[in-house]
Simulated scan of single mutants.
Amino acid sequence: MPRFVVVLPLVPLVPGDEFTVADWPLHVTLVEPFLTDVAVADLAAAVSRIAGSAAPVRASAGEEAMFGRRRDVPVTLVRDGGELAALRSGALDALREAGVDLDRIRARSDFRPHVTRKRHAYLVPGEHISLDTLALIDMRPAEGAHHRSVIASWRLGDRDSDVSD
Score class of each variant (00 low, 15 high):
V28S: 11
T36Q: 00
D42L: 08
A39P: 02
G52C: 13
P33C: 01
F34N: 04
V28W: 13
S60A: 14
T36G: 03
E32A: 15
I50M: 10
R49K: 14
V31H: 05
A65Y: 13
E64A: 14
F34P: 01
P33V: 01
D42A: 13
A65N: 12
A59Y: 07
L43V: 06
A61C: 14
A41E: 13
P33E: 04
A44P: 00
E63P: 09
D37A: 09
V47N: 01
A65F: 14
T36Y: 00
V40H: 03
I50H: 09
E64P: 03
H27C: 09
A45Y: 04
A45H: 08
G68K: 09
M66D: 02
V47T: 01
P56I: 03
S48E: 12
A61W: 14
S48N: 09
T29G: 06
S48K: 15
P33Q: 05
D37M: 03
M66G: 01
R69F: 07
D37N: 09
D42Q: 12
D37L: 04
M66F: 14
G62R: 12
S53P: 01
P33F: 04
V31W: 07
A54I: 01
A59K: 10
A46H: 05
A65G: 10
L35I: 08
S60R: 15
V47Y: 03
F34T: 03
G62Y: 14
A55L: 15
T29V: 04
L30M: 09
E32R: 12
P33D: 01
G62H: 13
E64D: 12
R69I: 05
A65L: 06
D37K: 07
V57K: 08
E32N: 06
H27T: 07
H27I: 05
H27F: 07
D42G: 03
A39L: 04
L30F: 10
G68D: 08
T36P: 01
V40S: 02
L30Q: 10
A55D: 15
L43D: 02
A55W: 11
L35M: 07
I50G: 02
D42C: 03
T36F: 01
P56D: 06
R58K: 15
F67T: 10
A55G: 11
A65K: 14
F34D: 06
R49N: 10
G62K: 12
L43G: 04
A59E: 11
E63W: 13
D37P: 00
V38H: 02
A44H: 05
V28R: 13
A59Q: 10
R69S: 11
T36I: 02
P56A: 00
G52K: 08
A65W: 12
P56Y: 03
S48W: 07
E64F: 06
S53Q: 12
L30Y: 10
H27R: 10
A46D: 03
L43S: 01
A59W: 09
